[in-house]
Amino acid sequence: MQIKKILNNNVIITTDKHNNELVVMGKGLAFQKRIGDEVVECQIDKTYRLSNSDLNTKLQELLEDVPIGYLELATVIIDSGKEKLHTSLNDSIYISLTDHLHTAIQRVKNNIRVPNLLLWDIKRFFTVEYQIGKEAVALIKRRFKVDLGEDEAGFIALHLVNAQTEIENDNVYVMTELMQEIIRIVSYYFKVQFDEESVYYYRFSTHLRFFASRIMNHRQNEGETDEELLLIIQKKYRNAYNCVEKVNQYVVKKYNYYMSNDEKLYLTIHIARLVQKLGQEEKSITSTNKK
């Protein structure tokens, strides 16, 4: 095993016996070494063999700008995710999560915090991923003396969600078609056209992406929503709930997927909010035109 490229004293590029590129880490692995020198294998701490050459190239480029400690941190989080989620994750998460952690930590050090508008959904629908995110935030606080807070725990959870989606949803077209059909059902039920550039539509479509992912992966969410709370929501948002029942009929018929109470409750709230905001905007436009 020979050194093909040196990224820094601790990270080198080499190849395996099949000529596949490897990113190899180890303390002092490349110290006073040159390209072509043999790798001291007892010094190797971690080896990364990503699924394709494009990802390998991106990881190399990232490690030229981001300290290796962030990749090590991301690896700890990813390993925890694989263990607790009982699934493999797309290799791209090594790049996306490393980059995100570096950016987030630097941002918070500069007293800049980005609110996570999806935190509510993440906590309810991706409880395991969010718990891993919270543990990651605690680990970062110990290692870097920086408290990222629960918003970033949610962002870390999203990286884990997306890494699962990329593996399990090979047919992106089918998932997109499902989302479009749900939007069509809602639009037809309320006889409205949605502004796809609005923040309210963005939040709704993002929630739909998570919902569609669960349907495609047959991963139903069963939370702790009780019947009484669901009845309250039914009464408060009667039209939105009836619309959700139309959506439920569709996914049962086409995907043999039965929505849980949690899913009905939160989809009802999302639809009610979207339609309400659309109604407010229409009233505002009408009022302005009259003037």
Rank of each mutant, 00 (worst) to 15 (best):
A240T: 09
L229R: 08
N169K: 05
E196P: 00
N171Y: 11
T225P: 04
R184N: 07
Y189E: 05
E197P: 00
M175L: 15
I185P: 01
V192D: 04
V186L: 05
R203D: 13
H207L: 11
H218Y: 11
E228R: 11
M179F: 02
L178F: 07
N169F: 00
L178S: 02
S187H: 07
R203K: 10
K246R: 15
L230Y: 10
I183L: 14
E177Q: 14
L229I: 13
H207G: 08
L229C: 03
M179P: 02
S187C: 07
E196R: 14
F204V: 08
Y200A: 13
Y241P: 04
N169Q: 11
C243S: 04
K191A: 05
L229G: 00
I182W: 03
S213T: 08
R219C: 13
E222V: 10
Q180G: 12
E181F: 07
K246W: 02
R184A: 15
I232D: 10
E227F: 09
F204D: 03
I185D: 05
E177Y: 12
R214G: 01
R238S: 14
S205W: 00
K246A: 14
V247D: 03
V172E: 09
V192G: 00
Y202P: 00
Q193F: 10
I185M: 05
A212S: 10
R209L: 15
I182L: 04
K235Y: 09
S213Y: 04
E197I: 06
V199L: 13
E245Q: 14
R219F: 10
R219Y: 06
V244P: 01
V244L: 04
M216P: 03
M179D: 00
E168F: 08
R219N: 15
T206E: 14
Y237M: 05
V172N: 08
T176I: 09
L208N: 01
S213A: 06
V174I: 12
V247R: 04
F204H: 04
F194A: 10
V186A: 03
T206H: 06
Y237F: 04
E181G: 03
T206W: 03
E177V: 08
M179K: 01
N171S: 12
N169V: 14
Y237A: 12
E227L: 02
I215C: 05
T176Y: 09
F211M: 02
I232P: 00
F190D: 01
T176S: 15
H207C: 05
D226L: 06
D195L: 09
S198I: 06
N221H: 11
L229Q: 12
K236S: 11
I185S: 07
N217T: 12
N217R: 02
S213M: 01
N242C: 08
Q234C: 12
R238E: 14
I233K: 01
I233M: 11
Y202F: 13
I215N: 03
I215T: 06
R214W: 03
E222A: 09
V244K: 03
F204C: 09
A212E: 02
L231Y: 10
M179I: 05
Y241D: 07
Q180I: 06
N239D: 15
V192P: 04
S205I: 15
Y173W: 11
S213N: 07
Y173V: 12
K236F: 01
N171H: 11
Y189K: 03
K236T: 13
C243G: 01
Q193R: 13
V172A: 11
E168V: 07
T206Q: 12
